[in-house]
Design a protein around this nucleic acid. Structure first.
Lengths: 101, 101
DNA sequence: GCATACTGTTTGTATTACAAACCGGTTTGC
DNA sequence: GCAAACCGGTTTGTAATACAAACAGTATGC
């Protein structure tokens, strides 16, 4: 059954914000910083902060903090695990797509 | 931007159970009854009941109640709206798929 | 008539998404 | 040099929601 594939998908990806974050990070060549992501996704800061932290806790995203011009600069990158999970998500959806069209 | 497509997706579909329900119903030739869906998706009755009701409230699913052998029989079917929304979902994900692989 | 099973629904709880308030530090205005 | 405004996020309070347990109505077996 195709629908069972959905149960294999990482739970954190079943949220539109987190999926959008992962989609963004998984295609980026370089780490993306907080404000860039914020602008692209049109979220509040708190919302982005908590979602990305959850993704980090689940090992899908890596968070790096540095200083640029004496200001903090936080960047996010997709981990290998993250790429794997998003790929698995897409595979599951693809299966649905094939079976339903 | 491909990620913006995600924001167009119906919020009710961002739940693995509801997505599984819709996937199931959207491919079915005939309405599917409660217990069939229950067995296929391995849920508790309460869980299925509430999720499918939400889908009905959002106009994605039609609920029909009849009597068979003096027992109640509830069946679910995907509405036209439901097919449209699931299709939009799949389109958005397909866009992600293309851009990220 | 009483117990058991079938088909769902309602309710209580625990989780979670979200934005507002907050916080440490920096730059700007005076 | 002091206060106000700003920057880059984090923490907290609240409202929504996912879930399973308890419940309800009906039918069947004894």
């Amino acid at each position: 059954m195709t629908t069972n594939d959905l149960l294999e998908v990482h739970p954190a990806l079943f949220d539109r914000v987190r999926l959008a974050i992962m989609a963004h990070l998984s295609v980026a060549k370089k780490p993306v910083d907080f404000n860039t992501l914020l602008a692209e996704l049109e979220l509040t800061r708190g919302n982005l902060s908590t979602h990305v932290r959850r993704l980090e806790e689940d090992g899908l995203v890596r968070i790096d903090k540095t200083f640029v011009d004496r200001k903090t600069r936080t960047t996010y990158a997709c981990t290998a695990r993250g790429k794997k999970e998003i790929s698995q998500y897409l595979t599951a959806i693809e299966a649905l797509l094939r079976s339903s069209l």
